[in-house]
Structures are given as C-alpha cells and as structure tokens.
Simulated assay, not measured.
Amino acid sequence: MLKQRTFALYVVLMTLVVVASNILVQYPLPGAIGPLQLGDLLTWGAFSYPVAFLVTDLTNRQFGPRIARRVVFCGFAVAVVLSVMLATPRLAIASGTAFLLGQLLDITLFNRLRTQGWWRAPLVGSLIGSALDTLIFFSIAFAPAFVVFGPNDPFALESAPLFGLLATEAPRWISWALGDLSVKILVGLVMLLPYGALMAVIKPMPGVKASAQG
C-alpha cells in the first residue's frame, strides 16, 4: 500500500511539473541585459522543466528503473495531451518526443551510475538528458529538415546574432536552444541540493541498488 501511494505521489508530482512547464513556456522572460532581450531567448518553462529530472531520479533511486519509466510514461501522456491542446501538431510532436527520450536517457544513465558518488548519477543523467531533450525539441520544432511535421516558423528561421550577443549569426531557433540548455544546466546543478537533502528520507527499496553513500 505504501509503495502504491508513493508511486501515485511521484506521478502527481511529474504531472504538476509537466502542466506547469506547458503553461510557463508561453511566457517569455521580461527585461534585458544590455542589447540582449531575455524574452528572445527564454521562457519561464526553462526553469520548471528540469524539476522533471529530479522527480525521475528520486523515483529511480527508490524503486529502480522499471517504476521510474512508468512515471515518465504517465508524464509523457500528460505532455502529449497538453501539447495538442495548447500548441500546433509540430510543437506537440517535438515536445512529447523530447520529453520521453530525454527522461528515458536520464533513467538509463542514472541506473548505470547509481553505485558511484551520490551526485554523479543525478547530475550526469539530468545534464545529458537535458541536452538530448533540447536538441530534439528545437530541431523537430524549428529546423527545416522536419518540415514534414508542419510549416516552418519564419521568425525562428531568421538570422540573428548567436545567443543574442555574439557576432556570428545563426537561425534564431539555435539561439533559443542555447539559452534553454544553459538554464537547464544551471537548474540541473541546483537540483542536486534537494536531491542530496532527500537522500536521508528516500531510501532504495529492498532489491534496488543504493549509491556509494546510501
């Protein structure tokens, strides 16, 4: 019974993260740093989405990869439904695919590294998973190669200073991707704090490998 309640809690947390991220992604950051308009690079969703990796890693730590994948698939279902309601079909495909593959990669890497230092598995899993998530989402959503999923966004394809500042120019969606990934890396590092704090509370179930520090 306790296992079922805990699993349900993880599903609820993942659902809340996905719902919040799908809402917050519609709101660009206000303000500017010099000539750089933050709204041209980031939305608030970039700050909330990495919490999904924390939920996945805590599930993996406590129950192992099989249950963690179930939580991810529940989050994936919610992500697809919300994306279909709130976005174009192309963005829905990009969002769902990126979420699923990024989270599953995180689970695989976490499980391979879980017996090493307590920080290594969640850090490596979330950072590499975030990189894959960003690559897949922005490529499918905006790259001309994926026009089969829907029309290109002319604004996203316009040339602009790379990352909003550098002299080198690139399609604007590449700057968006770099800004998004930068925030995900920063938040991924910050998420080590709650993960480390919860280690004393969330212990691996019998039969699930623990990290070197428990």
Rank of each mutant, 00 (worst) to 15 (best):
29 L>N: 00
50 P>N: 12
44 W>K: 07
53 F>L: 01
43 T>D: 09
28 P>T: 09
41 L>T: 05
27 Y>D: 04
23 I>D: 05
31 G>P: 01
50 P>Q: 13
26 Q>D: 04
51 V>E: 01
36 L>E: 07
43 T>P: 01
41 L>E: 03
25 V>A: 13
53 F>N: 00
34 G>R: 02
37 Q>Y: 13
27 Y>H: 11
51 V>A: 04
33 I>G: 04
33 I>D: 05
27 Y>W: 14
46 A>F: 10
27 Y>F: 15
43 T>V: 15
34 G>F: 11
40 D>P: 00
36 L>I: 15
25 V>H: 02
45 G>T: 06
24 L>S: 07
26 Q>M: 13
42 L>P: 00
48 S>H: 04
37 Q>A: 15
46 A>W: 05
27 Y>N: 06
22 N>S: 07
42 L>T: 11
45 G>K: 03
34 G>N: 08
49 Y>A: 05
35 P>E: 15
47 F>D: 03
42 L>A: 14
43 T>Y: 08
51 V>S: 02
23 I>Y: 12
35 P>A: 15
36 L>N: 02
26 Q>T: 10
31 G>H: 07
44 W>P: 00
22 N>F: 05
31 G>L: 11
42 L>N: 08
33 I>Y: 11
37 Q>V: 14
51 V>F: 09
28 P>K: 06
34 G>C: 10
36 L>Q: 05
25 V>Y: 04
24 L>V: 08
26 Q>A: 14
26 Q>H: 08
39 G>Q: 08
25 V>R: 03
42 L>E: 09
33 I>R: 02
46 A>M: 11
31 G>Y: 11
43 T>H: 10
35 P>T: 14
34 G>E: 09
51 V>C: 03
54 L>N: 00
24 L>T: 12
27 Y>Q: 08
52 A>N: 00
37 Q>F: 13
47 F>C: 05
42 L>M: 14
45 G>Q: 09
23 I>N: 03
25 V>S: 10
27 Y>R: 05
49 Y>K: 01
43 T>R: 07
49 Y>N: 03
45 G>H: 06
31 G>K: 06
54 L>I: 04
41 L>R: 01
39 G>V: 11
29 L>V: 09
32 A>E: 14
25 V>I: 14
35 P>S: 15
31 G>A: 12
40 D>G: 08
24 L>M: 12
50 P>V: 14
52 A>H: 02
35 P>F: 15
32 A>S: 14
48 S>W: 05
35 P>D: 15
36 L>A: 13
31 G>D: 11
37 Q>T: 13
24 L>Q: 04
29 L>C: 05
29 L>S: 02
38 L>K: 01
23 I>Q: 09
31 G>S: 10
49 Y>V: 06
49 Y>C: 02
28 P>Y: 06
48 S>E: 06
48 S>P: 00
45 G>N: 09
30 P>L: 15
22 N>T: 06
30 P>C: 15
54 L>A: 03
41 L>G: 02
31 G>W: 09
25 V>E: 09
26 Q>N: 07
40 D>E: 14
46 A>N: 07
22 N>C: 06
36 L>R: 03
47 F>W: 09
33 I>A: 12
40 D>M: 08
34 G>T: 08
42 L>G: 06
50 P>D: 12
44 W>D: 07
42 L>W: 13
27 Y>M: 10
38 L>S: 03
32 A>D: 11
47 F>K: 03
38 L>M: 09
23 I>E: 11
50 P>A: 15
52 A>E: 01
38 L>T: 04
49 Y>R: 01
